[in-house]
Nucleic acid binder design. Sequence first.
DNA 1: CTGCCTGCAAAGGATTTGCACTCAT
DNA 2: ATGAGTGCAAATCCTTTGCAGGCAG
Lengths: 173, 173
Amino acid sequence: MNAHTDTDRVEATLARLRELGERITPARQAVLRVIDAADRADEHLSAEHIGERVSTLEPSVHRATVYRTLTALTGAGVLTHVHLGSTGTVYHLATPGSEAALEASPAAYGKEVRQPHGHGHAHVQCVVCGRVQDAPSGVLDEAAGALREALGFELDTSHAALLGRCADCAGPA
Amino acid sequence: MNAHTDTDRVEATLARLRELGERITPARQAVLRVIDAADRADEHLSAEHIGERVSTLEPSVHRATVYRTLTALTGAGVLTHVHLGSTGTVYHLATPGSEAALEASPAAYGKEVRQPHGHGHAHVQCVVCGRVQDAPSGVLDEAAGALREALGFELDTSHAALLGRCADCAGPA
DNA sequence: CTGCCTGCAAAGGATTTGCACTCAT
DNA sequence: ATGAGTGCAAATCCTTTGCAGGCAG
């Protein structure tokens, strides 16, 4: 049941790229597959780390291409990135829907790409062990409202990780 | 009118350093003065930028020393830093009387950490223009509570900036 | 006097860029 | 065929580190 949905997610993204007039290349496919696999495993990969995995998957792809690809695909709206405090930036597929098998309808795109930013969930990172976790959805809703009202600031709740100490590192003092 | 309090803030910090057994050197004084001045002007300076200003104030101070000084003084608890999304890290004078070595020694990191209680304020940064603003205090209180309850995660509300669009950049798309 | 702190220079690692070529469309 | 995308290598950028000497305490 996985090999199937796996393909769907990457394929759906490729389809969106095509619609946008972007070219489909082996490098881009490899990058998307690596990120998709990481997403499914709840991993958060940096550009450099993605590059390593792409190399094993498609050895001819150069590191520089990975960087350019990440930038291009993020610009196209099919990838998103999250800035972690001091440990760089990690990437996600921007595919609508999420982890659970939403609905394997090939034509599920139905609509256009959503907002390039702001539809993902928030992340929290432990400054002690570096672990990144997904935050419950809505944790920043009130903050977003308060900031909008006080400053006219439109918060992008998923663009930067919140920092602190995870349960494991905070408890055992 | 200000020359007085200016001196006071830096002096107070120097006093704290002395109490901690840290040495007072021209380089450290210059760094503190630069950061203090920036704080007063609501500026948020990166290590590199601090280095530039220190150079004009005390030309003999080497860049490497600025980096080491920032690390050391942050460790001593008299400075704090805020991670901005993709534009590096900026430094502040730590507010006397509240947080001490939040990340003092590597050992203290996961150990008897003081609660990052309400002292430091949160920052928001505009991803369009890069501007950094202070967030109203308390905006993250609810989020902090929700994260503690849901994940046992202790949020450090002032360690990373929240990203989004400021009033100027959000409105007039 | 001690050893913490510094200056210097060189190393380091991550990301970017110029250029010519290739391949997806 | 045509130019977006790529490979390669060099260049940058910011930050760190080894070492020897200097100054604060």
